[in-house]
């Protein structure tokens, strides 16, 4: 009993230290989304190219990556080659949402760096982005065939995340 009383502080310290150790490896900039596994919020926005509107209903039955981007966003440029590669290989459909960006600027940026998107919607005032819980571009959402959000990437999509998390999920969802 006596010995236990002396060990207690050591045990308490060990538990707290374990929590801190785990916390050290977490990224405070990544806020977990409450929308995972929930139906995606409405997304009805004008198209960047041509007239007409884009609605989520278009994507029914296919797994799609919704990518919020902007021509003024520097980290978007760092994920862009990966998106181009995905589009060329036909890995996964990508729909772009231009966040608070002038259409001319988006178009010029895509002309310069390539257009990996199947469709591009324009979110001029950023309201749709707020409905989706976007707090900085780029952010990408994996939406399944029934219109549910299955995964969210905050910040640029990396090859590691794509290959280790997104693609296995896509494979599972396409079954």
């Amino acid at each position: 009993m006596r010995r236990l009383a002396y060990l207690l502080p050591v045990l308490l310290f060990a538990v707290v230290a374990l929590f801190f150790l785990k916390g050290l490896g977490l990224n405070p900039r990544e806020v977990p989304s409450p929308l995972i596994d929930k139906p995606a919020p409405a997304l009805t926005l004008p198209l960047l190219k041509g007239d007409g509107q884009f609605t989520l209903a278009e994507l029914k039955g296919r797994v799609t990556l919704i990518n919020f981007f902007a021509s003024w966003c520097v980290p978007c440029l760092s994920e862009h080659p990966l998106l181009m590669e995905m589009s060329k290989k036909g890995t996964l459909d990508i729909v772009g949402v231009a966040y608070k960006d002038k259409p001319e600027a988006s178009l010029a940026w895509l002309a310069r760096h390539g257009d990996p998107y199947r469709r591009i919607a324009v979110d001029n005032d950023g309201r749709t982005a707020i409905d989706w819980g976007v707090y900085g571009v780029p952010e990408s959402y994996l939406v399944d065939g029934e219109g549910r959000i299955r995964f969210k990437q905050v910040g640029p999509l990396t090859r590691e995340v794509l290959e280790k998390t997104v693609l296995p999920m896509v494979k599972e969802l396409r079954k």
Binding site: P32, S33, G133
Partner: peptide, 8 residues
Amino acid sequence: LVERYGDF
């Protein structure tokens, strides 16, 4: 706002 961004 919690519905969009969570408790954070």
